[in-house]
């Protein structure tokens, strides 16, 4: 591994988050397939995602997805904006800031039900 600076980290994070999101996508295709086995099977499986460990797992996925999305925009800007490469480092810090900010905002909605709070009135833990 070469000792680059922010460019090296942005590349490594992009690859790791991409692989992570892809693994989740495969899991997600399997759990959605369960809907073909009827409401009992599907709603039981859904309750697994309502548990604390899976909520933390979901938050990690969303954080990875947000990084991959924001850094993807950065890559496109570096490629297509003629002077984009000059600001790649500033854009990397912006990507990190936005990722952390948006992940924290999302964490409130994803994790609140663990503590018995319900940000979405009438919806929490109301598996039909």
């Amino acid at each position: 591994m070469y000792r680059g600076q922010s460019g090296q980290w942005s590349w490594l994070f992009h690859r790791v988050t991409g692989l992570g999101v892809l693994i989740f996508l495969l899991i997600h295709i399997v759990d959605i397939t369960l809907i073909g086995f009827g409401p009992t099977v599907y709603n039981d499986a859904l309750q697994v995602f309502d548990t604390a460990p899976f909520r933390i797992f979901t938050l990690a996925l969303i954080g990875a997805l947000l990084y991959h999305a924001f850094n993807g925009i950065r890559i496109i800007l570096v490629d297509f904006w003629p002077s984009g490469y000059k600001y790649q480092r500033q854009m990397f810090y912006t990507v990190m800031g936005l990722t952390i900010l948006c992940t924290l905002a999302t964490a409130f909605f994803i994790l609140a039900p663990i503590f018995g709070k319900c940000p979405q009135p009438g919806y929490c833990s109301a598996v039909m």
Binding site: N43, I62, Q120, Y123, S125
Partner: peptide, 14 residues
């Protein structure tokens, strides 16, 4: 995950 909690995305929701 945000507008609806994941626990609400049940069979009838889908």
């Amino acid at each position: 995950h945000i507008a609806n909690d994941v626990s609400a995305t049940s069979y009838s929701f889908i």
